[in-house]
Design a protein around this nucleic acid. Sequence first.
DNA 1: AAATCGGGGTG
DNA 2: CACCCAGATTT
Length: 346
Amino acid sequence: MIFSKTLTHWYSNNKRNLPWRETNNPYYIWLSEIILQQTQVKQGLPYYQAFVSKYPTVYDLAKANESDVLKLWQGLGYYSRARNLHATAKYVTNELNGKFPNTYKDLLKLKGIGDYTASAIASICFNEATAVVDGNVYRVLSRYFGIDIPINSSKGGKAFKELAQSLIDKNAPAEFNQAIMEFGATQCKPKNPYCNICPFKDSCIALNKNRIHELPVKIKSAKAKKKHFNFLVFISEDEKTILHKREGKGIWQNLYQFPLIETEKSMTIELFKSELKNNDLLSDATFDLSLYNKDAIVHKLSHQHLYTKFWIINIKAIPMGSVPISKIREFAVPVLIENFIESFNF
DNA sequence: AAATCGGGGTG
DNA sequence: CACCCAGATTT
């Protein structure tokens, strides 16, 4: 009780003004929570504004095309969030008559909503006392209580959820949940937290045992794998190119890209010319090949480092599946492709 | 339980 | 370079 009181008092004096704090409408809260998954407020804020502006209600989002939703999501990453967002908007509109579920248990059934998001919506919109556990909560609780169970282990997930649940103010769950996250985000930061002005400085176990820097404990993930991407940037005499939609598993599902040839090693122009001889897109056409970037562009993702070369292919005509170059900015593309499009002088 | 899914930012 | 972010889902 003293913990939650101290926390919410701190919050009342230190909370940021954020647009999703001006409403309890589950559509807006849901939208903000999906956008903010693994995403800092600063990065997500403009996307939230754009989505609210373009899709003011869940009905508007439901009747959009997935390609338009992905285009608005472009650059934010973790694109399954956008696909699930759209699918859930359609489900809520068509199967639930536009009304979001109003309990943790029922919210959990929706695509893209896991324990954290169900707890956030249930508490903020419906006053249900379910504790959120996000990266901020792991950090605050592991430090304050001196807990060194790895936060990304199944044991840690359960332990911290139960601890947060035991601490939540059942009379003000929305306030408590947002307070502990805000506290973790702006005060009890990963590096250089403001312990000298912390309201918990006397009772924080990590601070008093000088363990701030070693908590929370996290199991390390594998290092990223290197890949070599070669994009084929076709340019025909009538100013058309080729874009392919990424399908199946893997990164960037349902986004567009130039035709891709992945190779084991970095390609020189000689190696790549022979690589192209047995390519469907270029079977018996005459073309002129040049390399846009001599040194590979390294695009770093969580689990892959993409060493990328853009190959320019000037060709007389593109028989099928071509796109006017003037329209390529209408497609949702990965940041890697977007950066190329913006820097290349088409 | 471990791997996968992005991109921006910090120290 | 490692680590983190208002996590969820698949393997």
